[in-house]
Design a protein around this nucleic acid. Sequence first.
RNA 1: UCCCCAGUAGCUCAGUUGGCAGAGCAAUUGGCUGUUAACCAAUGGGUCCGCGGUUCAAAUCCGUGCUGGGGAGCCA
Length: 477
Amino acid sequence: MALDDPNFLIYNYFQDMAMKRIKINRLTGYDTSPGKVLIKGWVRTRRDAKGFSFMEINDGSCLNNIQVVAGSELANYTDIQGITTGSAVAVAGDLVASPGKGQKWEIQADTVEIISLAPETYPLQKKRHSDEFLRTIAHLRPRTNKYGAAFRIRSEMVHAVHRFYREKGFFYLTSPVITGSDCEGAGEMFRVTSLDPDAVLKQGKMDFSQDFFGQESNLTVSGQLSAEMFALALGDVYTFGPTFRAENSNTSRHVAEFWMLEPEMAFCDLSGNMDHGEELVKYLVNHALTACTDDLDLFTKFVDKNLAGRLKTLSEKTFERMSYTEAIGILEKSHKKFTYEVSYGTDLQSEHERFLAEEYVKKPVFLFDYPKEIKPFYMRINDDDKTVAAVDLLVPGIGELIGGSQREERLDVLESRMAQMKMPKEPYWWYLDSRRYGSVPHSGFGLGFERFLMMVTGISNIRDVIPFPRTPGSIDF
RNA sequence: UCCCCAGUAGCUCAGUUGGCAGAGCAAUUGGCUGUUAACCAAUGGGUCCGCGGUUCAAAUCCGUGCUGGGGAGCCA
């Protein structure tokens, strides 16, 4: 760096001041000016005025930009006038009350260091972009107001999940991502192998005994079975991590890799399970309402006008609870024209679920006690011997947010159910052991974390609440 | 996987009955200005998604493939 280089002067300035960088979200908190501040961030927009230049800087710490006023007396003013949208800068100067409208503070710059100048090919413009376009530049979209807000809320909600469970005395279980059983659930699974595809092709078949684990292995579709084992040891546990489904689902509510929260509670029946789900959802929503107000305001203004009302309902109204049988009765009595007929014994269609949650109860509703024929082996058989202690939470505008059950804890009942469903016992020897030794009633559920975020933000496509979405035919970034 | 819709400048879109490729914003240049999606003017910018067909002539009509969106199924 040459001595007459403006950046040399700036470097010396920072050395002399020995200033620490401050994040923009802390600036708004000041009632009186702290004097000199140093901020670093990315330029959202720049405008010239006579004798000085306005810049709006965002550092990702919050929705707000800070306006910087850079005067023509600055050594590198000519360079400053060439600063483009998307460039990275460090600005030091006095935090002063802004005479302009729209912001409380602005920085009267002593120095503006250009860390990195963005060329004119920077794809993000000052105007609104479509979600579809932003998905094609998913590596840059967190630099927009909407996606910055979405991912700050996502982070805040992750912390809230852990805090909720810690406060309730649950233990966090990191269940395995690679699993050996291929029949954990109904969904298609992603195969995990270290075999060379060309070699397999030459041999003409997969020899799993030659594979890394010596048997078929897959990415997990649920941590539930692991969680059950640990609930029966530590009492109350939860898993929270990535989950994989190889279903060829092309909808705004499905991705191949998503995060699922799965609590599992010993000595807990289906009713306790529902209590817990309702408490969890209310806690998370309330936390969002108090901790993410600025970001949520953006979604209420620009994304979903009904968001505030829906969050209020989630926070304040008691969730409805009704049995599957009751729900069928309501649907039949509704005399609504459905594309699919309502009939006892079959699973409810989307249109039926939507009617119940959005039109009939107009708030979240737990549906429980489903016919055993349409539910998996591990759900507890009720005394009527026709239904199982399953539960789904249906939320207006979102659909199924939670799916869970009380688990079958009686060894003989579980074994005969597996036999009826023609499932092999051997791979589940360890699962059945838990019913052999100190088996107790227990319950749990899975909550789709991205679907929860859709509910909290009003974002209507699941691809927009996950950093880099994986969907059929799409794994860019 | 099935049904419906769309694909035209960097972005958002218009393009009439098949007859010369357009606008706004962005970019670049200049002007003006305590501005704030700044403003004013000029300039540059096109594989009309790909392939095949019909036609004197295709962005436009037909077939097919790809990509994206909405809905359904599967589910969280």
